[in-house]
Design a protein around this nucleic acid. Structure first.
Length: 485
RNA sequence: GCGGAGUUAGUCCAGCCCGGCACGACGUCAGCUUCCCAAGCUGAAGGUCGCGGGUUCAAAUCCCGCACUCCGCACCA
């Protein structure tokens, strides 16, 4: 189960494939979801809604992907979501200016320093290209946001680099009109855009990607005042303590001081419970507290939810305590009021966020579900039935004797309720194998006995076991077996 | 963006050195046959040989440029 096998399965079975692939100028970092991928993604999103949005009574919004320049002045992305870069005139190597200087002179220059500051130091210390000893061009900033021009006057705007900015900007209205009460989660699923220098590895590093973000607005003085914490107190988390991953319950993590407060712990508990239900192998996951240098510029405390894949540890969710960084700066730049009343006290809420990468999560589900079943000479995707792109295949054992017609009749009765695939052609074993590869958990087969007693066989994907059930019971059977947990 | 290796049908790949109608397998489709786990037989479809230019009577093959993919470096809210 490695990256290449998943990639091949994805291409052959319609999970995902490169965008614009027939054209020469197709750019890296853009991928399309095919039919199987969309079906998996939709079901994953539905699970997310159930386990996080509905469970915690969050609000969900759907904001614009293009946002005006002021938003990113306030958010800090215009100045901070950019790296100071120097280019070697000779070999064209590109270096981060601050890192280069620190490496060679041990001087620490803040990333946010003036560009002229970098040029000055490079000149004074006579820093040359470590590769070819060439001279550097003047430092410049590479901003990772995509800029767009709006209307005939070409007003500056940007494709959002994270979905959460609309949640922050919309917060005052949502809180007022939707009768908000702290703490309150506001969630959003949508696309974000980052102009990565070198995107690679298909869904793992994209320039256009899906995020599911949850921003929890809370009173910073009441982070340990959370009744619903009891819902998760026995939920087990896997947390890195030092070099080791320790399994401990939410309550233990909190009591031992490994996690800072009830609110953060509660949401990390919900998150872990959610991922257990996606079929990702949580024994290959960990929560890792980020060091100061790794954290995003807006985070005061940050945990990554990471999973182990064939490409190494992969970050699926960034859990950042953003304090009042965002609301305060949006208040300053917009001159609007972002404070709210909490128990008759005016407070500027703090924010704890769960910023989930959907594409990476889907990849991990595929990889952790992938089984090379050599004994039965087949590839099986052991997806949870409620996430499977095809939930049931309807097959006729042979085409003749009216079996195909009977299969079609069953298909017509089930097709609007389940993701169903009808197949008459070829050997039955071959058809089972195909269904195994897209992760269809059940295959219903119409045989000669069906015509006599109205029963069909239902084959279970992972065990390959079959049982006979009445056609009239199929709907109930599938409803039970494919329902969300 | 740098260095290395690559790019030929949906997939894996041969052919390239030494220029002459692009090979095979898997998969797909249709039919026959068996009728519950990728069997067999018959037939078919599927290719701008990554893109552009050059050399040549003739380029998948030789030369130049570019793009993309993978690995390493760097980058990674």
């Amino acid at each position: 189960m490695n990256y290449d096998q998943i990639m091949q399965l994805a291409l052959e079975r319609g999970f995902y494939f490169p965008s614009c692939e027939v054209y020469v100028d197709a750019q890296a970092g853009f991928w399309e979801y095919g039919p199987s991928g969309v079906s998996l993604k939709n079901k994953f999103v539905e699970l997310w809604r159930r386990e996080l949005v509905r469970r915690d009574r969050m609000m969900e919004i759907d904001g614009s992907q293009i946002m005006s320049q002021s938003v990113f002045v306030a958010s800090g992305h215009l100045s901070s979501f950019a790296d100071p870069i120097v280019t070697c005139q000779k070999c064209k190597s590109i270096f981060r200016a601050d890192k280069l200087i620190t490496e060679i002179t041990s001087m620490v220059v803040p990333e946010s320093a003036d560009l002229s500051e970098f040029d000055k130091i490079i000149l004074e210390k006579n820093i040359v290209c470590p590769r070819c000893k060439g001279r550097f061009d003047n430092a410049h900033k590479f901003n990772m946001m995509f800029k767009v021009d709006i209307g005939p006057e070409s007003e500056s705007a940007y494709l959002r680099p994270e979905t959460c900015q609309s949640i922050f900007v919309d917060f005052p209205r949502l809180y007022k009109t939707m009768r908000g009460k702290l703490p309150i989660g506001i969630a959003q699923i949508g696309k974000s855009f980052r102009n990565e220098i070198s995107p690679r590895q298909s869904l793992l590093r994209l320039r256009e990607f899906y995020q599911a973000e949850i921003e929890v607005f809370c009173n910073p003085n009441k982070l340990d005042n959370l009744e619903k914490f009891s819902e998760v107190e026995n939920t087990e988390l896997r947390i890195m303590v030092g070099e080791n991953i320790k399994t401990m319950t939410c309550k233990q993590s909190l009591d031992s001081g490994v996690l800072p407060n009830k609110l953060v712990t509660y949401y990390l508990g919900l998150l872990t419970e959610f991922y257990q239900k996606t079929g990702i192998d949580v024994t290959k996951s960990r929560l890792r507290k980020l060091g100061d240098k790794e954290k995003a510029f807006y985070a005061s405390v940050a945990f990554d939810f990471e999973v182990e894949t064939s490409t190494g540890w992969l970050e699926l969710v960034a859990c950042n305590y953003r304090s009042d960084y965002d609301l305060k700066s949006h208040a300053n730049v917009s001159k609007e009021k972002f404070e709210v009343l909490d128990d008759d006290v005016k407070v500027l809420p703090h924010v704890f966020e769960l910023s989930m990468g959907i594409d990476r999560s889907l990849y991990t589900i595929l990889e952790h579900s992938f089984q090379d079943d050599k004994k039965n000479d087949r590839i099986v995707l052991s997806l949870k039935p409620y996430l499977a792109p095809v939930q049931v295949g309807i097959l006729s054992l042979v085409k003749k004797d009216g079996l195909a017609e009977k299969a079609e009749e069953i298909f017509l009765n089930l097709r609007t309720k389940y993701d169903t695939f009808l197949d008459h052609s070829g050997a039955i074993g071959r058809r089972y194998r195909r269904l195994d590869e897209v992760g269809a958990p059940f295959a219903v087969t119409v045989d000669h006995q069906t015509l006599q007693d109205g029963t069909v066989t239902v084959r279970e994907r992972d065990s390959m076991n079959q049982e006979r059930i009445k056609i009239s019971d199929l709907d109930l059977y599938l409803a039970r077996e494919t329902s969300y947990p």
